[in-house]
């Protein structure tokens, strides 16, 4: 029996970035920084005859989660694919730098929530977007080094692709739903470069088996699996900020070990059911088809948690 508040909670996948923020934070606590009224827009889209957005597709600010202050960043995947660009990226970088500078002061926050919904770098602003990703990585790791966890939430329509996939894996903890996808090169780009026999991007089941939330959490690429409603994301965000690994040499040595073992254990596999069979799952072929309750039960039996991120 699904609790009533979850039945009524809106879908993360279907929600806009603003509605995700509203549903994630305590009521009436969100304070946006450089909101749409300020009209801080991309100066480059005009060159391509593309309409800009008043927030450039990124919403940043602060609020509270269960009464504790948090900083929040949300990409709007429906505007230019939620891409990293000069302005959208600078909003993210500026917020992360401010979080680090305020650590230990009365303005400090308990965590940063990063709501990824992105195809990666905005190609119309490719160089600015690439640098924005690199600056985001450095600023995000600065936040973690200051002892503040950064929690990635992935379940939007655009997924977390390109530089967005790299940024996701730099976070302290990754929360994902079945609809969430994490990857670097998208299936379409692999197909364009290497052919449909390498990766058939129109085979939706295959795309999800390779990049989707269930595959990521089983392999250790995501840490918390949630049902696809906003309330479940909120509960996972509140839980995970207390259990995030610090950004230290010990953590990185543990991640080195974790990722080396993955390569030696599964490096010759061609599809995820092969990995799951080798990992000892009783019925690997059923993993994409069972419902969320059954999948969560399967996860709770398996103890795949790690502190190596």
């Amino acid at each position: 029996m699904i609790p009533e508040e979850i039945v009524r909670s809106p879908s993360w996948y279907e929600s806009s970035a603003r509605n995700r923020i509203t549903g994630l934070l305590d009521a009436e606590t969100f304070r946006e920084i450089l909101g749409p009224a300020e009209r801080v827009m991309s100066p480059h889209l005009e060159l391509f005859d593309l309409p800009p957005a008043f927030d450039d597709g990124v919403i940043v600010g602060r609020g509270q989660l269960d009464g504790k202050p948090v900083a929040i960043i949300a990409q709007e995947g429906q505007f230019m694919g939620g891409t990293f660009a000069e302005v959208s990226g600078a909003k993210i970088v500026g917020l992360l730098r401010a979080v680090t500078a305020s650590a230990g002061t009365p303005d400090g926050v308990s965590a940063v929530l990063l709501l990824l919904d992105t195809g990666g770098v905005r190609l119309q602003e490719a160089n600015a977007g690439e640098l924005a990703v690199s600056e985001t990585v450095r600023a995000l790791l600065g936040v973690r080094a200051a002892g503040i966890p950064v929690v990635a939430l992935v379940g939007g329509r655009a997924g977390a692709f390109g530089g967005g996939g790299i940024v996701t894996a730099c976070c302290s903890h990754v929360v994902i739903s079945e609809q969430g996808r994490i990857s670097v090169t998208g299936p379409e780009v692999i197909e364009t470069n290497k052919g449909a026999e390498e990766f058939d991007s129109r085979d939706r089941a295959l795309v999800w088996r390779i990049t989707g939330g269930r595959s990521r959490v089983l392999l250790g690429g995501a840490d918390s699996y949630v049902k696809g409603d906003v309330a479940s994301f909120r509960a996972a965000a509140a839980r995970s900020r207390n259990a995030a690994p610090p950004f230290t040499l010990e953590t990185m040595a543990a991640e080195q070990d974790r990722l080396e073992k993955r390569l030696s254990s599964y490096g010759d596999c061609r599809d995820t059911p092969e990995i799951w069979a080798r990992a000892g799952l009783a019925d690997p072929a059923s993993v994409p088809d069972i419902d969320d309750d059954a999948f969560l039960a399967l996860l709770s039996e398996r103890e795949i948690k790690h502190d190596a991120r």
Binding site: G165, I182, G221, L259
Partner: peptide
């Protein structure tokens, strides 16, 4: 990508 190239990068 299946092996999580994003994590390696």
């Amino acid at each position: 990508e299946m092996l999580g190239l994003n994590e390696y990068l």
